[in-house]
Amino acid sequence: MYPAPFEYHRARSVDEALSLLSQYGEAAKLIAGGHSLLPMMKLRLATPAHVIDIRTIQGLQYIEDRGDYIAIGAGTPHAMIEQSELLRAKMPLLSQAAAVIGDPQIRNMGTIGGSLAHADPAADYPAAVLAAEAQLVATGESGERVIPVEEFFVDLFQTDLDEREILTEIRVPAISENTRCAYRKFPHPASRFAVVGCAAVVTMENNRCSDVRIAFTGVASTAFRDTGVEDALKAQPLTSQSIEKAAALAAENDELEIMEDHFATEDYRRHLAKVFARRTLNQIASAF
C-alpha cells in the first residue's frame, strides 16, 4: 500500500520546521515516528501534499531533570521513556505507560510528542500525562506557550495545538517520597491500543490519601480525569474496601459519553473502567 504522492522535507531544526509549516499551511503534516501518520496515509485517510520530517532534529530527544519537574523532548521515542532511569526514579508513571504501548518495534519509532499531538482516544500516554498533571510546551513562530494538560485534549484526534505549532516538550512534576503511581490497561487483542487504560497517582499522609489523581483513556472521545473516584478516596485510608468503593464510581459521570464499537459496548467499557480502576489502585496500595 502506497500513500498518495507528496513532497518530503527534512527539517534540521524546530525553526526550520516552523517556517516550512507556515510556508505550506494546511497542505503540510509533520512526521515524527510516523507510526500513526503513515498507517493513515497508506489508507489515504491522510493525504498531505507536504510531509515535514522532525524525527532527526537534534535536541528534540531528551529526558532531563529540572529539579521540580522532568522535561521530556517531544521527539523522545517510547522505548527511551520506558527505559529511562531518571523517569523510573522520579516519575515512573510515564515509563509504566510507555512500556505497554504496542510492541518493541512500535516503541522504537513512536514518539511521545506524536502520540499526544495525534490524540487517539485509545492511546496510553494521554491518561498518564493527565494523572501526572503535566505541562506541554508548544512552540510557534512567535515563541513558546505552556499548555496545562487539562486544556490540551479537546476532542477525538483534536488538541489545543495550533496547526502551525510544534509540541516541543512535556514537563512532568517529580513525585514525592510518599507518592506512588501505576498504569494498567486492557489491551485490544489485535491492535494493542487501550480498550480501557487507567493511570493513577496517589499521595499518602498519615495513612490517608492526601492527593488522588485518576485518569482514563479508551473510555470516551478524549482521556479524562475521573473526579468521582478521586473524591471518594480523598482523606480515606487506601484499603481494599476503600478501593472497591471508589472504583465502583468509575465512569459514572452523567456528562461522560462512553465510546461504543464492535469490540466493546458502552456497558462493557464502563465495567472495564471500574475493574481497571480497582486493579490500578490495588497495585498502588501494594507499592506503599
Binding site: 518530503y8 510516523g34 507510526h35 503513515l38 498507517p39 518493541p104 518495534q105 512500535i106 522504537n108 519509532m109
Partner: peptide, 8 residues
C-alpha cells in the same frame, strides 16, 4: 528493530 513497512 523497526517495521520497514511503516517507514518511508
Amino acid at each position: 528493530a523497526v517495521k520497514s513497512c511503516t517507514l518511508l
